[in-house]
Amino acid sequence: MALFIEKPLAFVWRDFINETSYKFSFLLQFFGIFISTLIFFFLSKLLGDTGASYLKPYGGNYFSFVLIGIAFYSYLGISIHSISKSIREGQMFGTLEALLVTQTGIPTIIISSSLYSFIWASFRVAVYLLLGGLVFGVNMGNANLVGALLILILTILSFGSLGIISASFIMIFKRGDPVSRFFTGISTLLGGLYYPVSVLPEWLQNLSYLLPITYSLEGMRLALLKGYSLSMLMPNIAPLVIFSVIMLPISIMAFGYAIKRAKIEGTLTHY
């Protein structure tokens, strides 16, 4: 198998063995998925048709709306946090130095270190959607899976670039990365995770359109719940493309600078 696949797979294999060795915690995660789905199911029953007008563009059902929100929001969290987390863990556990003297480039190490989190998140999303569809009656019969996949990839790319910038902060300052804190907080508040953006005051709505999460979640809901075609999804796809095209090169440059500075200061493995 080509080496460029083998190395990321080795990281996934390492993390899988590590995670499954904590058996209780591993099993507990499945339980957590079920509980959170159940919580939102009952919340949606309580709300009933209260917010129907706001939810109309997404099919009018709060449970479907929030289920897709929480399912895909995890990608945002992972994209932003997992790279810096893997650096921080490598620094703290002492494994980073051993990784850095191998014949694997730093970008491969860093990106591969977060792969398991993405796979696990995808698995969680699949379980969320299955539970939603089979147990709680969420209708995704018309879903545009290609559109959803495209939006997912663009989401990962755009948030991944923020994650790389966040990792650059961690590489230099070790703690207190402002990027992930700011974007996670502001995205949760304004991105339309638990409620549609349309419930926000107009000035906050305008702010929300500066965030990629807004386009990601809306695009994902429209693709999965309403089966929008690719052309109909363009208002959501285009901003994500622009965001990725601008932010990815910036983030890679920032990361390169951070590594060089850490090598000069000798703090590559400090924490």
Binding site: R14, N18, Y22, G94, T95, E97, V101
Partner: peptide
């Protein structure tokens, strides 16, 4: 080859 003497440089649960 770099022999890192720090025992934390391994994955303890592997």
């Amino acid at each position: 080859g770099y022999v890192v003497s720090d025992e934390r440089s391994f994955y303890w649960r592997l």
